[in-house]
Design a protein around this nucleic acid. Structure first.
Length: 352
DNA sequence: CATCCGTGGCA
DNA sequence: TTGCCAAGGAT
């Protein structure tokens, strides 16, 4: 009547349905003693923060190809790592990734600590990621609580309290279910359940390994949970960007400061982004306003960019920014909003 | 503790 | 087209 969901039932399901991912060791391989490489677990978990598996896959393969070990990554140039991360978003993750790799290499001799508290003291590793590494890489009985786990717990226990206030309660409930046996597989199993069956919309309760004992299903409110407080509406900001190309083919770009929006990334010089941006060109030239605008939405605001283009003479020196030779310029190194600008503006500079 | 920080897919 | 959503952390 009031059965509690059994972790064993979820593990049985996971043994048959675990999804294949480049950073994962299959349950069968694990039976023969294989543990996942902590470096790969860490790298994947950082990339997966607020990011889908589909988006992460190619980035993970690129990073492990370029930097097979944490020590390789620690030795990398900052700009190369930021360029490799371009397009994945939340660029503070990339900066902290490098910091963390260097701490692990220098202070821990290239060996990730297995202790959750030690992990959480490292840059970019918070409550979720420390539990994920400790459980998945080192099979310690730590409890991961991400968006999937919150949703699964809210439904299994029919928690009506909305997020984010319900976070602490959901964490306690999740901890109450974490088994001492195979905690790493269990952690991935709960998240897989949330990603494939206990989905935000139209959960597939009919094929759920935890259908028995799920209170929300009994009450017929699974799809309505977790409840969430309304979010603030996004304002719309405006801005101007300047796309300049020197007569020798070089592009005028600037490295953004480490802190703040798109921190550490390469971008086009331009105005501030606000309700009434104040623009001044980075170099004197015959600027032309492009017909098309670029629209882009960040986490907390919409942006509409006006684009100015110009060819400039070799003799002119810019007030800010740096010239990147054409052969060194890859649009894919830019964050998405600036890549959109390039896509719209590039036709002006075609005959090269 | 509230705010800041990307992106692409999808209803 | 718009808003919601996804394996969060730092400040």
């Amino acid at each position: 009547m009031c059965e509690t969901p059994q972790p064993e039932d979820l593990l049985t399901w996971y043994d048959r349905h675990a999804r294949i991912m480049p950073w994962r060791v299959s349950p069968e391989d694990r039976k023969s003693g294989h543990r996942p490489d902590p470096y790969r677990v860490w790298l994947s978990e950082i990339m997966l923060q607020q990011t889908t598996v589909a988006a992460v896959r190619s980035y993970f393969l690129k990073f492990t190809e370029l930097w097979p070990t944490v020590s390789d990554l620690a030795r990398a140039e900052d700009d190369d790592v930021m360029a490799a991360w371009a397009g994945l978003g939340y660029y503070a993750r990339a900066r902290n990734l490098l910091k963390c790799a260097r701490v692990v290499t220098e202070r821990y001799n290239g060996i990730f600590p297995s202790d959750r508290a030690a992990l959480q003291s490292l840059p970019g590793i918070g409550p979720y990621t420390s539990a994920a590494i400790a459980s998945i890489a080192f099979d310690q009985p730590e409890t991961v609580v991400d968006g999937n786990v919150e949703r699964v717990m809210a439904r299994v226990f029919a928690v009506e309290e909305p997020l984010p206030p319900a976070k602490a309660r959901l964490t306690t409930l999740a901890e109450s279910l974490t088994p001492k046996k195979r905690p790493g597989d269990y952690a991935q199993a709960v998240m897989d359940l949330g990603a494939t069956i206990c989905t935000p919309k139209r959960p597939a309760c009919g094929i759920c390994p935890w259908m028995t004992g799920c209170k929300a299903r009994d009450l017929g409110i699974a799809a309505d949970l977790p409840r969430k407080l309304a979010k603030a509406a996004k304002p719309t900001r405006k801005g101007v960007v300047y796309v300049a190309r020197r007569s020798d083919g070089a592009w005028l770009l600037e490295r953004r400061p480490d802190k703040g929006l798109l921190g550490g990334m390469l971008g086009w010089p331009g105005s501030d982004w606000s309700d009434a941006p104040t623009a001044s060109a980075p170099i004197s030239a015959d600027w032309t306003t492009l017909d098309a605008e670029v629209r882009h939405t960040f986490t907390h605001f919409h942006l509409i960019l006006t684009i100015q283009t110009a060819w400039v003479a070799v003799e002119e020196n810019p007030s800010n920014g740096q010239y990147i030779p054409h052969r060194d310029f890859r649009p894919t190194d830019l964050p998405t909003v600036f890549r959109k600008v390039f896509d719209v503006a590039s036709h002006v500079f075609l005959n090269d």
